[in-house]
Structure formats: structure tokens, C-alpha cells
Design a protein around this nucleic acid. Structure first.
Length: 275
DNA sequence: CGTTACCCCTGGAGGC
DNA sequence: TGCCTCCAGGGGTAAC
């Protein structure tokens, strides 16, 4: 359950349940995710208190204070990961790879496809961790605007949709919201990024912000197996304008939504509305 | 340097 | 009811 809005909703959902809680121990049942979970994660976490959860792109950063030091539990949900607060006596399922055990409950990481990440970064600044060091600009930050996008795309000859999904450029915009943002801005996903003018960059940056903000406000996602941090079924059908609507009528012009393939991913767009 | 093809992995959907 | 193929929110790497 992946893109920035889902991760942010997850962060906000978990925060009241874990902030200020002490981790008594951590269990790693299956360490082989996108990269190996540190074998000594249990020792690293035991006795620490989670004081806050931050987010960088699609990464969740748990601020873990020890008696003398500070460190960060870094979690990425991949395609199918989720974090849920469950009762301590709830038996783990097949894909429940990690438990953080609190006195009165368990924060459980589950990920069937195992594209996620659970790792540890010692010290005060998680930003220097290799996974985070190369991350691009936060699209909801004030620094991200049309001027920034224009400057960042001048030497990018690839299609704009692929550029938007490159986390080294902009973080958090995945396959669904890239398509939705481009529709909102009236820009074709096929257009070379460097051939989008300054004013259209303004519109695109604004469309990305609005699309992500709307999805966060809606509390989640268009994702089928999206599950809230409390475990409730969180299938909010956000009315996608183009994503997963191949062959259906464009809500704006009644033309037909087209599906193509870009860099191995499905792209949906309206050829009449997007140029 | 920038871009693409392929890989990681499981599960669900749909065709036969 | 199988069994097979294709597809899915991400992202790193190798190769052009």
C-alpha cells in the first residue's frame, strides 16, 4: 500500500498508538525483504521508546530513544506491506515478518511480496542513511513548485510520467498519482519532460500537490487491499479519473481512456484531454 | 550522465 | 475443479 498518501495516512494512524510507548522486544520471523533485516534488530530496539514517526518520501521513520542515544527504525512498505497495531496474543500469519512488542500491544509488519524494507539507522539524523540520502524533493513542501520542476526537467528527455515516478527527483509519486496528476494538469504522460514549458510546470506542480492532498484527506487510497493501521478495511474508492480505467469514458470529455506501457508500468491517460 | 530492461516475490483474476 | 498466464501500489541494478 504504497504511494505517499497511503504512507502518510499510515503514519497519522499509527502515531497516537505508538508515540510514547516503550518497546519491550522485537521479533523478526523472516528477515529477507528487499534487503536483509538486521539480525540484531531485537537487541537494538529493546527498551527504547518511540517518540515520533516521521516520513521521508515513502519511508516511515520511527524516532526511537534509548537511555543514552537515539536511533531510527526505517520502514518502507514496498508494494504490499502494511503496519498494524494488533493485540499481543494475536497469532502471526504467513506474511507477518516483524513484531515490535509494546507492553499492551504489538506493531506488526506484514508484506506478502517482500518488497518492503525494515532497517535501523543509529544516531540523530536518518537523512544520511544510504536509502534516504538520494531521495528527491518532497512534493508537498513549499520548495516544490513550478519553478523547481521546470529547472529539474530541463535535461530530462524521458517521458514526464517516468520522471515523476523517479524518487531521486520527486519522492512519493507512484503509478496511480502520477497518472492522476498528469490528467489533472492536462499533460500527456508521453511528453518529454524537457519539452514542458514553465507555465505548464506550474500547473503540473499544483496538480501533484492537489492530487496527493486530496488522497490524504480522503483517508487513503484507491488500492484494493489497502488496510488501515488499526486493521479496519480501508478501501476508500477514490474516484480515479484515469488509473485502471482503460476503455472507459473520460469523465471530462467522454472520450476513451487509453492504457499504454512505460518503463514496465501501466500508464492510463485521456488522449483527448492530455497533450 | 540519463534511460530502459529485468529482477526481486506472492497472490488474485481470468482464460481454457 | 485445476493449471496456466498475466498483472499489481516499488525500486535497485546492470547494460545501452
Amino acid at each position: 500500500m504504497p504511494e505517499l498518501p497511503e504512507v502518510e495516512v499510515c503514519r497519522r494512524g499509527l502515531l497516537p498508538g505508538v508515540a510514547g510507548r516503550r518497546i519491550s522486544r522485537a521479533l523478526v520471523r523472516f528477515p529477507r525483504l528487499r534487503e536483509a533485516i538486521p539480525e540484531n534488530l531485537g537487541e537494538l530496539l529493546a527498551g527504547r521508546t518511540v517518540v515520533d514517526i516521521a516520513r521521508r518520501g515513502k519511508y516511515l521513520l520511527f524516532d526511537c530513544r534509548g537511555e543514552a542515544d537515539r536511533g531510527w527504525l526505517i520502514v518502507h512498505l514496498g508494494m504490499t506491506g502494511n503496519l498494524r497495531l494488533v493485540a499481543g496474543d494475536r497469532p502471526p500469519g504467513r506474511h507477518d515478518h516483524v513484531d515490535l512488542v509494546f507492553d499492551d500491544g504489538v506493531l506488526r509488519f506484514s508484506d506478502p511480496r517482500r518488497f518492503g524494507v525494515v532497517t535501523w539507522h543509529p544516531g540523530a539524523d536518518p537523512g544520511c542513511h544510504p536509502l534516504l540520502a538520494g531521495q528527491g524533493i518532497e512534493p508537498l513542501s513549499a520548495a516544490f513548485d513550478g519553478a523547481w520542476l521546470y529547472a529539474a526537467t530541463r535535461r530530462r528527455s524521458g517521458p514526464i510520467k517516468t520522471v515523476l515516478m523517479d524518487a531521486h527527483t520527486v519522492v512519493g509519486v507512484g503509478n496511480i498519482y502520477a497518472a492522476e496528476s498528469l490528467f489533472r494538469a492536462g499533460i500527456s504522460p508521453l511528453r518529454a519532460a524537457c519539452r514542458i514549458g514553465r507555465e505548464r510546470c506550474d500547473r503540473l506542480a499544483a496538480a501533484i500537490k492537489a492530487t496527493l492532498a486530496d488522497a490524504i484527506a480522503a483517508g487513503g487510497s484507491s488500492i484494493r487491499d489497502y488496510v488501515h493501521s488499526d486493521g479496519s478495511s480501508g478501501y476508500f474508492q477514490i474516484a480515479c479519473a484515469v488509473y485502471d480505467r482503460a476503455g472507459q469514458a473520460c469523465r471530462r470529455c467522454r472520450g476513451t481512456i487509453r492504457q499504454i506501457r512505460q518503463a514496465g508500468r501501466s500508464t492510463y491517460y485521456c488522449p483527448a484531454c492530455q497533450h
